[in-house]
Amino acid sequence: MNWIAIGVTLKLAMLTALLLVVIGLPIAYWVSFSRWRWKFLVESVVALPLVLPPTVMGFYILVAIGPHSPFGRLYTDLVGHPLPFTFEGLLIASVLYSLPFAVQPFAAAFDQVDRRLIEASWTLGVSRAGTFFKLILPMSVAGVVTGFVLSFAHTLGEFGVVLMVGGNIEGVTRTVSIDIYDEVQALNYAGAAMTALFLLAVSYLILLSVYAMNRKVWAVWPQK
């Protein structure tokens, strides 16, 4: 088993999930509460990673963060090296790729909060931000944990985007799924099997915890 790849993968998944809580909560709040009639345009964009082939996602992210894009140039000027094939570049790609896995459970949880409770909070003089942190977030804990765990699990298993954006650099961007692919290419089936089993067990345990914790809020399967 490649412990270095496992370390990189866990670090990537943890940072991705944490960043998605920070980025995903405001997006989900907007998705759930906005009355803008063209809201579905944004919702569709957020959901794109669910249906796009990872190579297509990876390709566009690679171009977008590459040294020829305005963002890539700015980053290179500031930091001194380009983003592609670094851990940071991989992190940006992972966050975008797992965005719907965080935003959708968050937004579904916010949708469940009775609007009359929110109005009651406003008439009690509590600001919109205060209402979010004192009322909406505590009532959405299950959805927030679900989004965190799902984006963590989703990042563990990503392959195409990692390969396109991160490449395959030992200790930096070589994740578990890529390590498995390498082992199979090298006909080392025993090594691949060990790592694959590890990934399977971890993923299964994570989903187990999500379903056990929460049978009402949106999970990886549509609600019955």
Binding site: L117, E119, A120, W122, T123, L135, P138, M139
Partner: peptide
């Protein structure tokens, strides 16, 4: 003027108590 600044006490029909 937003509801926060009107200084009213409002009670809805279903009371809207905060369950948490």
């Amino acid at each position: 003027v937003p509801p926060q600044e009107r200084g009213v006490g409002y009670m809805s029909q279903d009371y809207s108590l905060f369950p948490t």
